[in-house]
Structure formats: structure tokens, C-alpha cells
């Protein structure tokens, strides 16, 4: 049963911060991969927010501030020193070249009709997300789900913006690859040339932005 807080002690700061509870909890679940830990993590974060409330500058983004506390609490409490190591021997070692899959395959991957197995795909995305190294998972969730800016994410994760970008890029690529492999395993799409080593050059007529720029320049000249 929910213990009723004493109304005489109600606090606007509490109300305002707790309006982000669902979002904080959802992300905490993905970080800890365990509902009990997620509840403890979220509680720790809110208590720290209360303790540090003077530090919050009115008019700035309260949600970003709360997520910064959540992220740091997670890193401190649940990950400790393990974070950086997992990047080095995790899937990061695998080169993730751009253009490893053709445009038509990408179309099939994003088209639920073609996959015709949407709940399974959702489950696969959930599984792939859980399998990501924590810092990739964190970057992807903060960006794609919570829609924080790169700068805000960099502050939350305590790393440069370039690192955020590379974590995002790799996280998303790993998710796509998991989905791709899953779709192939289900026989929903045909496999193309092997993804990975040597980095597959997709058969489509890729024109990179650099080439495009070059052509444009030549055209203009």
C-alpha cells in the first residue's frame, strides 16, 4: 500500500521532479535490466536531487538535470569501473562499416508489413538493446527515446560530444545489425554479402557525401 505523505510537508520541488518519474523509471529499467534495481536507482536519484536542489538553476532544463543525476548514480553504483573495459572487448572491436546493407534491405527492415512479425521484432529490439554495452545503451536511450541534445548527453555521461556521437553511432549500428540478423534468421529477408570482415561494401550505388561534394564542386567549376 502506498504510504500517504503528510500533506503539510508537500513540496512543489517534489511534485515537479516526480512528474518525470515514469520516464526516469523506464530508462532506469533499461539501464539496470532489473525492476527492483531500477526502483532503487530512481529513488537514489530523486533523493540526491532533493539534497542538491540548491544547485538546480531555475529556468534550466529540470528533466536534463534529473537525468544527469540518474546517469551518474547508475555509473557510480551499478557500473563502477567496468564501464570502460566493456567498450574495449565488447562488440566495439568489430568494425561497423557504413553501407553494410543495401537500400532495399533497409527498406524491408523498417517496413513492418514486410517483416509481418512486429511483436517479435519488438522483442528482438528489446533483446538487442539489453545486449548493448551500457554506455552505448545509455547514449541511444538518452538520444532516441528521451531526445536530449548531444551536449546534454555529454554532460550526463561526463564525456566529450564526439564520444557521445561515436557511442550513438555504434549503438544504433549494433541494433540494426541485430535486427538484420534476426530478419535473416526468420527468412524474412535474404542475406546479402556477409556483414563485417572485410567490411562489406554494399552493392548499391553509394555516393558518400564527400563524393557528392566533390561532384558538386566539379559541376560548379
Amino acid at each position: 500500500m502506498r504510504p500517504l505523505p503528510d500533506p503539510s510537508k508537500s513540496d512543489p520541488f517534489c511534485d515537479e521532479t516526480l512528474s518525470h518519474l515514469d520516464a526516469m523509471y523506464a530508462v532506469a529499467c533499461k539501464l539496470t535490466r532489473n525492476p527492483t534495481d531500477a526502483q532503487d536507482l530512481v529513488q537514489d536519484a530523486f533523493v540526491k536531487a532533493m539534497r542538491a536542489r540548491q544547485q538546480f538553476q531555475a529556468g534550466t532544463n529540470l528533466k536534463a538535470w534529473l537525468f544527469r543525476i540518474l546517469t551518474n548514480t547508475f555509473i557510480n553504483k551499478y557500473r563502477r569501473g567496468g564501464l570502460e573495459r566493456s567498450v574495449l572487448d565488447g562488440p566495439d572491436a568489430d568494425p561497423l562499416a557504413d553501407g553494410w546493407v543495401s537500400a532495399s534491405t533497409m527498406r524491408q527492415l523498417r517496413d513492418p508489413e514486410a517483416l509481418a512479425l512486429m511483436p517479435i521484432v519488438q522483442e528482438e529490439i528489446r533483446r538487442a538493446l539489453d545486449a548493448l554495452p551500457a554506455e552505448f545503451r545509455l547514449a541511444v536511450i538518452l538520444c532516441d527515446v528521451e531526445e536530449f541534445s548531444y551536449e546534454e548527453i555529454a554532460q550526463m555521461m561526463g564525456c566529450p560530444i564526439g564520444t557521445v556521437m561515436s557511442r550513438l553511432h555504434r549503438g544504433r549500428k549494433l541494433l540494426q545489425r541485430a535486427l538484420y540478423n534476426h530478419a535473416i534468421a526468420l527468412g524474412v529477408i535474404k542475406g546479402e554479402e556477409r556483414v563485417g570482415d572485410p567490411p562489406a561494401r554494399a552493392p548499391h550505388n553509394t555516393s558518400s557525401l564527400e563524393e557528392y561534394r566533390g561532384r558538386k564542386k566539379r559541376g560548379a567549376a
Partner: peptide, 16 residues
């Protein structure tokens, strides 16, 4: 996903 029933009250008490 929503936070489970009761979590809000628990956290509110801890914050206060």
C-alpha cells in the same frame, strides 16, 4: 512504461 504503483509515494517520502 509507467512506474509501478507505490513507487511515487515511496520516493516522495524519501525525498521529504
Amino acid at each position: 512504461g509507467a512506474a509501478p504503483e507505490g513507487l511515487r509515494g515511496r520516493i516522495e517520502n524519501a525525498m521529504i
